[in-house]
Design a protein around this nucleic acid. Structure first.
Lengths: 183, 183
DNA sequence: GGAATCATGTAAGTAGTTACATGATTGA
DNA sequence: TCAATCATGTAACTACTTACATGATTCC
């Protein structure tokens, strides 16, 4: 029954790349990972505790070192955790349906009544998308400036590219929609 | 505190267009509205009860007519409901962040280890997107075949167009990603 | 008569957000 | 010394899905 949380796998995935503490994960989630995923820290910390209990991760900051000066709980993925992660990675992707889109919901329900309002929503969305594009562009430039290339860099680039293409298409569609509404 | 459910507005929006019963709403949600929104009937029915209590909708199938032969509960939006709906429609859209994307999550975490698996995910996504495109194409054709045009038809077309453009971009990106992974 | 679909609801459980709460460290 | 940020956690609450449950109607 019920949906399955993927917080678990997001954590395992991050720890598979590098050992780190909860706070570091939150930074990552608010940073690059935010391009395609989100987690709240109210969900993260309890899940970390659960993963420890399941022995999918270990805390490599020993109990006796804490809470002496500046020692966050650094977590590391276990081989069992790695196995669980890779099994999940190979599983087919479950969420194929297009996600909820509040813009389309509002547009569809208000278009007839209030074209001005709808156009405002669309213009605002365009501004947002443009900001995203500018941000992603600088990120891509930064990444390309680093001479060092590698498989992980290529993946990062792909993710950024995804955001870029989606936002551009969104803007294109918004322009079309505005045209229709103004007509 | 906490997130706000938009089930309420989805219902009001549907009833603003046409009076109908809960079952009809579920059909709509599983049909056209599914292009941009989702609701489960386990969420819908309790929300209908709540809206009745708030007097944003009324049930126009009188109590005494039920449960005689074939009489579903037909709901109608009230003027108060309409007001609440329109106020919400004008409010800025809250959910601007890009939604969770399980494909990108898996790709980002597995790319280095398992390019074959990643490519499989991408190819599967392409198949799905192509099916969606085919479906939307027929819907658009159907709609255009009807000579009758109007504002609501234009909106429907816009929504379908949105899905079309997004899926096409997705395929384009998948192709790019596959190329990078195969390299 | 039996299957599909019409039609409405409730129950149980998970997922998730936000606010509350606390305290250490760093650097201006 | 004060603000920002590092760092971890819990509490309260909402949202949501899926399964359970039931019964009528329609059409073959």
């Amino acid at each position: 029954m019920a949906r399955k949380s993927r917080t678990k796998y997001a954590i395992l995935g991050m720890l598979d790349q590098k050992e780190m503490c909860g706070y570091d994960m939150i930074q990552k989630i608010k940073g690059f990972i935010n391009n395609f995923w989100s987690e709240s820290h109210g969900q993260l910390y309890p899940t970390l505790a659960k993963l420890l209990k399941e022995e999918l991760i270990t805390c490599i900051t020993p109990e006796e070192m804490r809470p002496t000066i500046k020692s966050p709980k650094v977590y590391k993925i276990t081989s069992k955790g790695r196995k669980v992660l890779h099994e999940w990675l190979e599983l087919p992707i479950e969420t194929l349906q297009s996600p909820r889109n509040e813009l389309l919901l509002k547009l569809y329900f208000s278009g007839k009544h209030d074209t001005k309002g709808s156009i405002a929503h669309l213009e605002y969305r365009k501004v947002w998308a443009q900001k995203r594009i500018a941000y992603i562009d600088t990120k891509i430039a930064e990444l390309k400036a680093k001479k060092k290339t590698g498989p992980s860099q290529e993946l990062t680039l792909l993710v950024l590219e995804h955001g870029l293409m989606m936002r551009k298409t969104e803007i294109e569609w918004c322009n079309k929609a505005v045209k229709v509404l103004k007509k």
